[in-house]
Design a protein around this nucleic acid. Structure first.
Lengths: 144, 144
DNA sequence: ATAAGGGTTGGAGTTGACTCCAATGTCAAG
DNA sequence: CTTGACATTGGAGTCAACTCCAACCCTTAT
């Protein structure tokens, strides 16, 4: 086993992914089956780091895993961005421009919210209500 | 009922949402309960259009519904972007910048893919394999 | 040699965000 | 006054993308 090889959780650490997610990606074919150590441990290489980084970028780009899978197929074969795949990508690029547009509007909304009436550095001085505002814990009841 | 009032599907049409989704948003408290016609039909107003547009923008911004709910609470009360909420927003803004960065890298990847070896206007001239590349239909087997 | 902390599997469960349904009521047009 | 396209409800189902689990195996430090 080469020095550059790494286990599943090491790959996770380097890419900000969990071991479970990586194994999941292998199950659905997004990541290839890789070499194994004598004990059966997966041995990933730098190319897997690269591939996973590509996947994460593509996800942020707004593509779904099956679309990314398709893209990787094209990438792997180093050719054939044919009709359908072209449309997927150029279409996504266009959508993205719209999104950037609408995003800058939200950014304005948010700047407005952030400034509002709040005194500059009195973060904790505000009455935040009860534990009402609890990110992560779903309100379930919802606020009306 | 004022001229500006509209039914659930009209609101949907104006915002690119389905009636079901709008009712769902009401269930979870993202949209307020609104006035009803004598027959019990929901009567939405322009302010609901605005609110729903805000929600969609926030979604594109990458926020989840419960975070948006929180944001709307702040917006409704017109104040208190206190510690926690501030962090949510500024944090998201920072992440966004990273995303834009990583996005431009993917854009480069994609430009590369799009150009590749393909002759300029021979879109349909490429051997796309079988029906292998089928967006929308999950491969299930995955390509390995 | 044993305990802590990794790894393996197949399969089941969870989460977020819808999406659909049946049964029923309402409204405008012909 | 019926037909068709809307509306109402509560609850169940779907989908993508994880996330967790039990029951096991491997490695390293004490």
């Amino acid at each position: 086993m080469l020095m550059t090889d790494m286990t599943v959780s090491e790959l996770g650490r380097r890419t900000g992914t969990t071991a479970d997610t990586i194994r999941y990606y292998q199950r659905i074919g997004l990541l290839p089956d890789v070499a194994r150590s004598p004990a059966g441990y997966r041995l990933f290489t730098d190319s897997d780091v690269e591939r996973l980084a590509f996947i994460k970028r593509a996800q942020r780009f707004g593509l779904q895993l099956d679309q990314i899978s398709e893209l990787l197929g094209v990438r792997d074969r180093g050719l054939c961005p044919c009709g359908h795949t072209r449309e997927l990508l150029t279409g996504r690029l266009e959508e993205l421009d719209e999104q950037l547009e609408s995003l800058s509007r939200l950014r304005a909304d948010i700047e407005h919210l952030l400034q509002g009436d709040s005194p500059s550095e009195a973060d904790d001085a505000w009455p935040c209500g009860s534990g009402l505002i609890e990110i992560g814990a779903r309100p379930k009841g919802g606020r009306k």
